[in-house]
């Protein structure tokens, strides 16, 4: 990945009110590829596509919808990848990993695509109005970010299978807790508490009480 080593230009490091964090990037080569895509580098785009397009397709088909046309997943790949090209400039490698950023893009595209399939109602809002995909301009230290992503990757491996199963239903298949409960033949309360316990185990809960009464 040597050709992407110069990912942080001086211009980027001084943009906004960020503290100086010039030469250190998160241990995520794909973030650097995205930064190159922001500079309209087509070779970088091709590499990104080759790695991520199959995952976008897998993500899309993890939520099969009755009567969905077989071309839907390929349509999603096209839409997500065009957004990658157009929005790469809004990606900030100090604030999110490439995978998380791409997840938010694919999530929003999948929502829009499934809604568009349901043609008869006019849609005054797009998913981007309801789910932000761009990071806000608040300073977050690089150290904080990379530690979080390292901790998350490691704790993912120790997640009890019953918690992982539910988090996967929610985050990959985009299922509500009620839908997950129905599919897994579990009480709704169990799904809710496993979700909270799983998120706690992954250390992504910020100042929240894991025992809060689920609503």
């Amino acid at each position: 990945m040597a050709e992407y080593a110069l990912a942080t230009s001086p211009g980027q490091a001084t943009r906004g009110n960020k503290p100086m964090q010039t030469n250190v990037l998160r241990d995520d080569d794909w973030s650097r590829v995205l930064v190159s895509i922001a500079q309209k580098d087509r070779i970088a785009f091709q590499r990104f596509f080759e790695h991520f397009a199959p995952l976008v397709k897998g993500y899309c088909l993890s939520k099969p919808v009755p009567g969905q046309p077989p071309t839907l997943a390929d349509e999603l790949v096209q839409e997500v990848m065009i957004k990658v090209w157009l929005k790469a400039q809004s990606f900030d490698p100090h604030k999110a990993s490439a995978s998380t950023w791409l997840f938010t893009l694919a999530r929003n595209c999948r929502i829009d695509l499934l809604r568009r399939n349901n043609k008869h109602i006019s849609q005054p809002l797009e998913s981007d109005d309801l789910w932000a995909t761009e990071d806000e301009q608040t300073p977050v230290t690089h150290l904080q970010q990379s530690r979080d992503s390292g901790v998350l990757k490691a704790s993912m491996k120790t997640l009890p299978p019953e918690q992982k199963e539910i988090l996967k239903k929610v985050f990959m298949e985009g299922k509500t807790h009620s839908e997950a409960a129905e599919e897994l033949k579990l009480p709704l309360g169990t799904v809710k508490s496993r979700t909270r316990l799983g998120l706690k185990k992954l250390k992504v809960l910020i100042g929240r009480n894991v025992n809060e009464v689920g609503q």
């Binding site: 397009a53 199959p54 995952l55 397709k57 897998g58 993500y59 088909l61 993890s62 997943a73 390929d74 790949v77 999110a96 990993s97 995978s99 998380t100 950023w101 791409l102 997840f103 938010t104 694919a106 999530r107 979080d148 992503s149 998350l152 990757k153 993912m156 988090l167 996967k168 985050f171 990959m172 998120l199 992954l202 992504v204």
Partner: peptide, 16 residues
């Protein structure tokens, strides 16, 4: 959303 990103990384790779 980082949890989503992590699961996304382990999605099934389907041919494009």
């Amino acid at each position: 959303q980082q949890v989503g990103g992590n699961f996304f990384d382990s999605a099934e790779r389907l041919g494009v």
